[in-house]
Design a protein around this nucleic acid. Structure first.
Lengths: 113, 113
DNA sequence: CCGAATCCTTGAAGATACTG
DNA sequence: CAGTATCTTCAAGGATTCGG
């Protein structure tokens, strides 16, 4: 997910770019929760039962390296790590909102069949 | 991608729902192109060099079974197959728009570093 | 022209166990 | 508390070939 030559459309087509960033299965859910404000690792985990620590860590690292999430470590015992959205991560909120709206519509539409 | 029990959040959390529908690597790009109007298979393919026939077919079938895309076959020789957005597929346009806007922002942001 | 049918490779996702 | 470190699995993505 790091190496991009001229052949792929990363950093050319915005849809491809977004696809890559949000590719992770839990990416949008994480971004949604973080759009409500800074959260600790454990808080995020409790908000999303269904993924393991390892999976959540990987997803957060991916979002961090994409530049959407900031990871702040407080050198304490016990450890304390806080996650929050960067400015470009905050800019993703309109996408989250429209996804939520469409998702509701889609759920309703699917249930009435 | 068909079987959903109560344990996953499909048809519960709109973000998870959207994630599943748009999971395919080319899903949003296809939806984007179709949002401009009906297109034949070959036209779609020409718009997206970089994926093979087989891959495009699979992606289109996935979107069709999700209910976002309609597939219309004209029994001719040579064959003619047209793809278009269903109503719920049309409803996805706001998401596409916000994705495009954010994607542009992200690309600009990444290039200036 | 628009696929279907195979086979293959890759890597994301998760389960599990251990640690500063 | 917030991770690492492995191992396994499973299906998406793609290459290739064939067909109506």
């Amino acid at each position: 997910m790091e190496n991009h030559d001229k052949q792929d459309l990363y950093l050319v087509c915005p849809y491809v770019t977004a696809q890559k960033v949000v590719a992770g299965k839990w990416a949008v859910v994480v971004l949604h929760h973080l759009s409500g404000g800074t959260l600790r690792f454990g808080q995020l985990q409790r908000l999303m039962p269904g993924l393991t620590q390892a999976t959540l860590t990987k997803q957060l690292r991916a979002l961090e390296s994409s530049g959407l999430v900031r990871r702040q470590v407080y050198p304490q015992v016990p450890p304390r790590v806080e996650y929050s959205l960067t400015p470009i991560g905050q800019a993703f909120r309109p996408v989250l909102d429209s996804i939520a709206q469409w998702g509701e519509k889609y759920i309703a539409y699917m249930q009435q069949r």
